[in-house]
Design a protein around this nucleic acid. Structure first.
Lengths: 140, 140
DNA sequence: CTAAGTGCAAAATGTTTGCATACTT
DNA sequence: AAGTATGCAAACATTTTGCACTTAG
């Protein structure tokens, strides 16, 4: 008795927005602003409700960065380069978000699985710390 | 011209609360509830303002778990066992938060530093994924 | 006495929900 | 027609802020 999903204009609009924001992260508010600028009316409730569906479908990833208390989203559709698992590094000092693609980090997933039975979700996981610049500054 | 910090009764109260919650994570609301139950009046604004100071001082760590949209805190004072860097694993399915102490994971920090110049903050970083139970269930 | 902290209530966010209306199938 | 989605406004939840008052130094 699973719920059916109707195809709507708003869904397509959102998808086009995600693609425009490809490889960047964005909040619900960013999406609203995107359409506001284009003079396309779309309700904030619709954005939130559709986001939830896109997340369930795996089209969009959701995670929290903390600084604002807004959820962040990132498009992860099929036409997105995601061969290499990509991680997020977030600088706690300057706030920069670094997208890191590193094969070595895949070992991390293997380790967590082998030793701790934990299936890592690399997309959603955010590494907090200090970026190169801020770390260097802190060490002076 | 740095700012002086006065010692107040509320600070001590908060500290005692943190110690009572040692090795558990809690939200601002949890702190308020803790004092409410003890019939100790303390303003929510004070809690938030003091939290900020404790976080700056490193007495308390702050991070986001996402499910509720509330910040989570965890006491990390000197009288806390933190010899081994401890990580948080958060199950995206059942919501369980696992405290993981693992020496092997310290290599992760070394790798991020050596290869990417990034200083990892293990306390704040949360690994998302599926715990043993939920992961096994998903693989059936 | 002065700087800093407190508590309240109000405002500012960010997100969810109820409900009448509109769109999909 | 039946079921789902939309948009608005209201409700909620979390956090921040302005201001008069108290407290620590």
């Amino acid at each position: 008795m699973e719920k059916m999903n109707y195809k709507t204009k708003q869904q397509d609009l959102l998808l086009s927005c995600f693609k425009a924001m490809r490889n960047r992260h964005f909040t619900a508010e960013d999406v609203r602003a995107y359409f506001l600028k284009k003079n396309i009316p779309i309700g904030i409730a619709t954005i939130y409700r559709q986001m939830e569906k896109f997340v369930s479908a795996g089209t969009v990833q959701k995670y929290f960065l903390g600084e604002q208390n807004a959820a962040c989203f990132e498009y992860s559709g099929d036409d997105c380069h995601k061969e290499v698992s990509h991680f997020h590094l977030k600088c706690e000092n300057c706030g920069k978000l670094i997208h890191l693609e590193c094969h070595d980090l895949e070992k991390l997933g293997s380790h967590l699985m082998a030793e701790h039975g934990f299936t890592l979700d690399p997309f959603r996981t955010v590494f907090y710390g200090l970026c190169q610049n801020c770390g260097a500054a802190a060490r002076i």
